[in-house]
Design a binder for these strands. Sequence first.
RNA 1: GUGAGUGUAGCUCAGUUGGUCAGAGCGCUAGGUUGUGGUCCUAGAAGUCGGGGGUUCGAGUCCCCUCACUCACCCCA
Length: 429
Amino acid sequence: MSFQAPRGMRDFYPEDMAFRTRLFDVWTATARAHGFAQYDAPIVEHLDLLTRKAGEEIIEQIYAFQDKSGRKLALRPEVTPSLVRLVAARRSRIVMPAKWFTIAQCFRYERMSKGRKREHFQWNLDIIGSDSIIADLEVLATAADALRTLGLTPQDANIHVGNRNLVGEMLHAIGVPDQQQLDVLMVLDKRGKVSDEVLVEMLTEAGVAAHVSPQIMKIFDVRDLEDAAALVPADSPAIRELRTLFDLADRAGVGPFLRFDIAVVRGLAYYTGIVFEAFDTRRRFRAILGGGRYDRLFESLGEPPLPAVGFGFGDVVIKEVLDKTGVDQSPGKDVDVCVGVFDHAHWPEALAVAGALRADGLHVDLALGAVGPNKLFKYADRRNASRVVFVAPEELKSDCVVLRDMTTGSQAAVPIPDITAAIRKQPPD
RNA sequence: GUGAGUGUAGCUCAGUUGGUCAGAGCGCUAGGUUGUGGUCCUAGAAGUCGGGGGUUCGAGUCCCCUCACUCACCCCA
């Protein structure tokens, strides 16, 4: 056997699965705690739905294929188009605003690099049908809660919050035509990846006049909302929105995780207002999560307008961050009790004991191949079982089995009918 | 698609100018200890040196091709 998982696809061994399950649990519990309901959609989607949102170019970057009837399909590269499809189909029946989340496996055909596989799981969480800043805040607070529950602190990671409308107002004040702003935003998103000189070149290519570029670059000098306010009209809606958002974040208890960052604009065309990305504070990794407000997506897909805000949070980068941050990820024990025998003849009694313990809700493993004291205890040790119950000839004569505490090494003979109670009396740590 | 780096035991890796270079640690198996695990000691199993071709008396080592993995770019989740 020389096969390995196809390029970019991942195997999940038990230890990997332990993390994945824990992560999914946190995502699910956090979403529920904030009143979001779970949905799902097929991994295979209509190619047309995906291209209508992302453009024909995306075909080169996804697993696209035809089924045996010639239907053009694709493995979903993201779940937002499906979300729009689901909401649009039952629009009149869904209670708005809809607060929905999903954990979706998504695929993308591209070269792999750090933090990027060809397949990943992404927690998507959205509020559809509300244009209130409270909705933005609720989404951000949920994201921050998830980071906190995973063991990260504001010293480890922050959610950088920007506002496209704010940059838009600034560009407008400088004199950049509105129809040019999106191109300029896309260039500004490259900040940090390329040098400022290259950035200016890209601005020129985007049609920005030479004397305007330096003014655009000065936008990056903005450090806080006060700096920003100085560059836009006093009655700026974008500033007012951000101030409200940060005030509310403090009241919601997630303020320390949030920070204003003028440079966050996101590389996607459809965002319309608040945008955000979470990074580890040392900026050693890609964005942990990213999202924002996308009030025009529905209409761009041919639906009546519907405001929305949400984010995507993948499983790959967060794993890297948690590993590097040294957050305690020790998983719970797989096994509470290991049951074994000193002699093959005693499996009937051992199975009866194991059955009783399982009926009581304990996680019980049988030391199938490890018969005899040496092998049994060594096996139990490696399985990380805190208790061992074994059937031994001497004790069995008086209808007892032996309960051993693997942490202390102490053990005692216990009448078989009392074994469950004996374990319950001294629950493992 | 472009560029760079790395492929030697299950894992992490060493291997000098081509000539006992098929190795170490960890892990695994067995024994010391057939009624007692973790520590310790001893022994053992295990590798077509990623694959193919070439140069050479001789290739893990040099050359070519290829595959895989990693990183960066591109693109974005």
